[in-house]
């Protein structure tokens, strides 16, 4: 709901704009930080035993060549049982396990020891409602002529559910990320739609018959919603009517040197995955 209003402000910005161009700008450079991409996603109907975590470094803004982090010690602990799942260094920045045991409403702790510093983070696994239907239409969305996909599900009766969606097409370089919460739609049947703008200036085409779309729908914790909400708002830059950009901090705390905090997030989610072919 709120995102619609944010979208409205973003669109206002676009519509008053008469000229946009890419320019050279000098920016400041922060110290390079550890980047944690620890997404333990349990696909509904699978065991969820196989999980992997990626560690990299951040880079200056215009120089996106990051370095894989090798030689870190990575463990995840089930806070309820105390069971520890060690992640094995694959020497390419990824760390994997085949024994993870995901459980609903359980909080997990991530611990990373890297370069003499210890990072920790926590997240709680929440159940995801079943997707009742995925269908396509043109009526809704911004444009009556382009195809949008609809994902239908029932929001849980208790308030406080948050969702993260990731849509990918093989021909697109970047995925589309969206978050939503049930603040204004609690307990309702939700029809979440996804559309790609038909923008003549860009090479990106709207959804067309034959397109294969991978849809991932996660149930996420509230802190992760707060994090992703800002991350997504700031993706692609911030216009004059949108919130001033801010530094977003994830949940990985450096207990050795708090100033040297890590970017990224440790999330534990349950998800639905659907591959839909547009007709």
């Amino acid at each position: 709901m709120k995102n619609y209003i944010k979208l409205f402000l973003a669109v206002c910005t676009i519509s008053v704009v008469s000229c946009e161009d890419v320019i050279d700008v000098d920016v400041q450079t922060d110290t390079l930080r550890l980047v944690v991409e620890a997404s333990l996603d349990w696909e509904k109907g699978t065991t969820g035993n196989d999980q992997s975590i990626t560690l990299r470094t951040s880079t200056p803004f215009f120089d996106t060549q990051s370095t894989d982090v090798i030689g870190a010690e990575v463990n995840v602990t089930n806070n309820s049982t105390g069971e520890v799942y060690p992640f094995t260094d694959q020497n390419n920045g990824t760390y994997t396990t085949t024994t993870f045991d995901p459980q609903i409403y359980v909080t997990y702790t991530l611990e990373i020891i890297y370069d003499g510093e210890r990072f920790t983070a926590e997240d709680t696994l929440r159940p995801v409602p079943n997707i009742k239907e995925v269908y396509q239409d043109t009526e809704d969305g911004f444009d009556d002529e382009t195809i949008e996909l609809h994902i239908v599900f029932d929001d849980f009766q208790d308030e406080g559910d948050s969702y993260f969606f990731k849509f990918e097409r093989p021909q697109d370089l970047l995925p589309t990320l969206e978050v939503g919460d049930d603040e204004f739609i609690n307990g309702n049947e939700v029809d979440w739609w996804y559309e790609i703008d038909d923008d003549e200036d860009e090479e990106i085409k709207p959804l067309l018959p034959g397109d294969i779309v991978t849809i991932n729908m996660h149930s996420i914790s509230r802190p992760y919603y707060n994090y992703m909400d800002i991350v997504i708002d700031q993706l692609g830059g911030v216009g004059i009517f949108e919130s001033t950009p801010v530094e977003v901090k994830g949940n990985c705390i450096n207990t050795t040197d708090p100033e040297n905090y890590a970017h990224g997030y440790f999330r534990v989610t349950q998800k639905n995955s659907v591959i839909y072919t547009v007709e």
Binding site: V35, E37, S39, V246, G264
Partner: peptide, 25 residues
């Protein structure tokens, strides 16, 4: 005065900007 990025990192398949101090650019 505006806030510009002071770095970036890869996450969820996209580049995320980290931002400098408020209004420091």
């Amino acid at each position: 005065p505006v806030t510009y990025p002071n770095g970036q990192y890869e996450y969820e398949g996209v580049s995320i900007a980290s931002y400098a101090d408020r209004n420091s650019d």
